[in-house]
Amino acid sequence: MHVSLLRGVGVATAVYGALVALRPDLLAKPSGLVDSDGSTADATAVSLRPLGWRDAASGLAMATAPAGAPLATAALLRVAADFGDAVLLGATLPDRSTRLKAVAVSVGWGTLSVIGLLAPSGVDRHQ
Rank of each mutant, 00 (worst) to 15 (best):
M1H: 13
M1C: 06
M1E: 09
H2R: 08
V3T: 15
V3N: 02
L5C: 03
L5I: 11
L5A: 13
L5Y: 02
L6I: 08
R7C: 11
R7D: 09
G8C: 01
V9F: 11
G10W: 11
V11R: 03
A12Y: 04
A12V: 12
A12I: 07
A12R: 07
T13S: 07
A14V: 03
A14T: 09
A14M: 09
V15H: 12
V15Q: 10
G17D: 02
G17M: 06
A18Y: 14
A18N: 08
L19N: 07
V20N: 06
P24N: 12
D25W: 12
L26K: 05
L27G: 01
L27N: 01
K29E: 14
K29W: 03
P30K: 02
V34D: 09
D35N: 14
S36H: 06
S36T: 12
D37M: 03
G38P: 11
S39C: 00
S39L: 01
T40P: 03
A41E: 14
A41Q: 12
D42V: 10
D42A: 12
A45T: 00
V46I: 14
V46N: 07
V46A: 13
P50I: 13
P50W: 14
P50G: 06
L51Y: 10
L51W: 07
G52N: 00
W53S: 08
W53I: 14
R54C: 08
D55Q: 09
D55R: 03
A56M: 13
A57S: 15
G59I: 04
L60K: 00
L60A: 15
M62G: 05
M62R: 10
A63G: 07
T64D: 01
T64N: 04
A65C: 15
A65L: 08
P66S: 10
A67H: 05
A67V: 04
G68C: 08
A69N: 09
A69R: 15
P70A: 15
P70R: 07
P70H: 11
A72C: 01
A72I: 00
T73I: 06
A74H: 10
A75R: 00
A75G: 04
L76T: 06
L76I: 05
L77W: 05
A80S: 10
A80N: 05
A80Y: 06
A81H: 02
D82N: 10
D85A: 04
A86W: 02
V87K: 03
V87G: 05
L88Y: 10
L88M: 13
L89Q: 14
A91K: 15
L93W: 02
P94S: 09
R96Y: 00
T98S: 07
T98L: 05
R99K: 12
R99V: 02
K101M: 07
K101L: 15
K101F: 05
A102E: 02
A102R: 00
A102M: 04
A102Y: 00
A102S: 15
V103K: 01
V103M: 01
V105P: 00
S106L: 04
S106R: 00
V107K: 05
G108N: 00
G108W: 08
G108H: 04
G110P: 03
T111C: 13
S113L: 08
S113R: 05
S113A: 14
V114Q: 11
V114G: 03
I115W: 03
L117Y: 02
A119T: 15
A119S: 08
P120A: 15
P120C: 10
S121F: 00
S121G: 07
V123S: 13
D124K: 08
D124P: 11
H126F: 15
H126A: 15
Q127H: 11
